[in-house]
């Protein structure tokens, strides 16, 4: 299949603008479409649309497994079956960044956090990647279930915050805050390390554990995990105006003091 002609628009609230050639199709998670030209036909398939050895039941089980990775059981296929190029726009589900990943350059598969998959080429498989390491599952920040995206061509992944891609050489290590990891190629070793010192663990603000990723391969990290963002927003929503500074309060006290003082000494 020919490469997609696409452009990612926007900075923090992005969407992908596809120019689909004749016969080209895009598969995307449900509800992600922003707009499509009238001649694009939209179809719904079970799971990622791929076949299973066990027929319909196998496909259904795959779809259920896929739904555990933060995706819906069905996905939408957008096909241009006209002769002329057509336009399609797929929007990100939340604030953050969309990153195109060429699976051919990543050894055919990558492992992402739950719900990272946004859109891609037909034939790519979204599978459940189960974290077999107990401590990583408990303390790694990503839980026991991640998603494995395999196949060929470009896949678009999405995560909140700004995404940073780092290529790791053999045995090259990176410390990552737990929860900031978005994805990695399947050769990357993902582990957790105790923060080392109790002082760092308790007061370092990063928790008791760091995630470590070891090359070879590529890792993607996000600047603001959704959990952290939602925590900030909820706190702000509950406290009203966000956090007013201590100095501001002191200033207010001073003014009140001056007013009271002037009341008694007025006249």
């Amino acid at each position: 299949m020919a490469q997609f002609d696409y452009k990612i628009n926007g900075t923090d609230l992005q969407y992908i603008h596809f120019r689909l050639n004749s016969g080209q199709q895009v598969i995307a998670e449900q509800g992600a479409m922003m707009f499509a030209e009238d001649n694009i036909t939209i179809d719904t398939v079970l799971g990622d649309g791929s076949d299973s050895r066990f027929g319909v039941i196998g496909r259904f089980i795959n779809a259920v497994k896929r739904s555990y990775t933060g995706e819906s059981m069905f996905s939408s296929i957008y096909l241009n079956d006209t002769a002329s190029p057509q336009t399609l726009a797929i929007a990100a589900p939340g604030p953050g960044e969309i990153v195109p990943v060429n699976l051919d350059e990543q050894g055919g598969s990558i492992i992402c956090q739950k719900g990272a998959y946004l859109a891609g080429e037909r034939g790519q498989r979204i599978q459940l990647a189960f974290q077999k390491r107990l401590r990583v599952g408990f303390f790694g920040g990503e839980g026991f279930i991640m998603q494995k995206i395999g196949g060929q061509g470009v896949v678009f992944i999405h995560a909140s915050g700004t995404l940073k891609q780092v290529a790791l050489g053999p045995n090259q290590k990176l410390k990552v805050d737990t929860g900031c990891l978005v994805g990695m190629s399947s050769t990357v070793r993902y582990d957790i390390k105790y923060a080392g010192k109790l002082k760092t663990g308790l007061f370092g603000g990063e928790g008791l554990f760091y995630a470590t990723v070891t090359g070879p391969g590529t890792v993607w990290m996000q600047s603001l995990p959704l959990k952290r963002l939602s925590k900030i927003l909820v706190t702000a929503a509950i406290t009203g105006r966000g956090n007013s500074s201590v100095l501001g309060k002191l200033y207010l006290l001073l003014i009140i003091g001056v007013v009271i003082f002037s009341l008694f000494n007025g006249g």
Binding site: M146, P170, T187
Partner: peptide, 25 residues
């Protein structure tokens, strides 16, 4: 030899080179 991979079950053999580490899996 070292352990690599998401499932911690892949074998990597690496060696030092003046330009940096090389490895194969």
């Amino acid at each position: 030899a070292s352990v690599v991979g998401f499932d911690h079950d892949q074998l990597q053999l690496s060696w030092r080179h003046e330009a940096g580490d090389y490895s194969f899996i």
